[in-house]
Structure formats: C-alpha cells, structure tokens
Amino acid sequence: MSAPAAPETLEPPAPATAATDGAVAIKGRSPWEIVRARLTRDKITMTALVFSMLFVLIAILSPLMVKLGWLKPDQTNTELVQGLGSLPEGFAGGMSLQHWLGVEPGTGRDLFSRIITGITTSLTVALIATLISVLLGTTLGIISGFSKGRLDWFISRFLDLVLSFPSTLMLLSLGPVLVSRIAAIMGISSADNKAKIAFMALVLGFFGFPFFARIIRGQVLSLREREFVEAARSLGARSGRIYGKELLPHLWAPILVYTTLILPANIAAEAALGFLGVGINPPTASLGAILNDSVAYAIPDPAYFIFPGLTVFFIVLSFNLLGDGLRDALDPKSGRS
C-alpha cells in the first residue's frame, strides 16, 4: 500500500469483457476505490463486516433496550430454577418464548438479555483497550522508527521489556490495588464498574501496544528513506511535521488492519479476565463472567454453556475475518491472496 503511484492500476477488469465491451472507458481509480472494489468482491470479508457492524450496533443499543424494558438482564426469576442444584427446568436450559436462550442457573435471569448486555461491556473494554494500544503504538512506533540511534534503542528496549512482562499474572495479583488507585484518581468508589472497565482497558491496552509499535516502526524504517521524506527534511521540515503530514498518511492502512486484528484479541482477553475472576462487578454482565460461570454447568446444563461460548466465538471470528480481509485488500502482497 505504500506505493500509491503506478502498479495498483494493473488490477485488471476481466480481459474478456474488456475485449467485447469496448465502450467502457478505462477510468483511473484512486487507491481507496481499488480497495473498496476488492473488498466488495470478497464475500467472506463482507459477511464479516456485516456481522461486526451488527455486534457494534448491539453494543451501542443494548443500554437503550434495557431502559425500554425489552431486555431484563438483572431480573431474577427464581421460580424457573427450582431443579436440583438450582438448575433451570424445561428444554435446553429453560428456553421459552420469554427466554429465547433459556435462563441462568441459580437466579433465573434471562440468558439472552445477559449475553446482549455482556457484549456491550466486553466491546467497550476491548474498544478502549484497542484505542489505547493504537495511540500509544503509533506514536512510539513513528518516533522510534524515524529517530535513528539512542532514542530508537531506548524505545525498542522498552517495548521488549513490556513484551516480556507476565501481564496475566500482573492483572491477577495487582488487580485489586490498581482498581482502587484508578477509582481514587477518577474520584469514584472502587466498587464502581467504571473503575474496573478503565482498569481492564488500561492494562489490556498497555500490554497490547508493543506489537503495534513494532509494526509501525518497521513501516517507518522503510518510509523514512523514501524521497518525499528526504525532500521534506532537506526543505527543513521539523520532525513533528514529518511525523504528522508525511509519515502518518502512509500508515493508515497498517493501522486500520492491525486495529481490526487487535480488537478481537482484546475481546478474547476480556473474556479470559472475566473467566479468571478479575472482571466486571456483578450484577453487570460481561461475556467473560458468563463464560466463567457456565463452565461448571457444561454437563448438567449445556445450553447455558454453549450460547455464551458461541457468542464469543462469532464476535472474535467476525472481527478477525474482517481484519484479514482488510489486510488483503490494502496490501495484496501479504496474506492469503
């Protein structure tokens, strides 16, 4: 994607049609138009895009649906879970017209509502974490790649340091302390879920950014030797201008691609954190917390285990396929095609 000039137009309109259909003039297309054309031709990526958009839409709309009373994620229905060990009675975990995916053992809360609101929580954490990774990664990657010598060395070693840090261990052991610190900084109670969301997003974002920074640094290393950068430099442009006006426009493609790839990784990581018990405070639902609880019920109540698992699976899959497709479209030299 780094060469906007000549070869992209080689993308051929199928030769047979070109021969018979001489009337169609060959139009010059901008790089973005080419990318869009490639994307729309890729059915898998388009499906993934639709699903990803759907999940994001669900995440945005679920608080509204709770307000309107369409979803009741916190309403207990103990009368539905009178089976031994408080299992739901009836077919597939208590599936019914009111409870499409059945109810949660122990409380009888509607599983569908909890999964939908869980998507909101999980996506919020994952999106903020991704944003942090992208901002930090891009900034440090550009600085590191462009400035030769000592600064580059320091930043690179810092990235190594962060990468070699046992992040999960740190999350588990420092979790409670950090949450109360963050809560104190934000001026809210440590029991407030905002503090926990901020904590998870910060930690996931922080441990995710070095990958990003390295990729950007690699791109910048090749870019900085190019003529337009040299020209800017010889004209006396300051570093800040070169970063923002010369380098950044050429980095949008990798940023976009790796954003869509880091996002699903963060969704999975949030689920894992909830699974390890450092997730969001109850009764707020998150996909990880639901999964964590459901594992024990895999045998007596498989429906309760399968639906949240499938949800996480589809979200991660959609964003991953979307990221893959974007990469193929933006950078045909790498990847599948």
Binding site: D74, Q75, T76, T78, E104, G106, T107, R109, P282, P283, A289, D293
Partner: peptide, 9 residues
C-alpha cells in the same frame, strides 16, 4: 456473585 445479584434486586 449470583446470590448477591439476587439480594441486590
């Protein structure tokens, strides 16, 4: 966690 969600309600 579930028990206290019920109590909260």
């Amino acid at each position: 966690d579930k028990a206290f969600s019920s109590l909260k309600e």
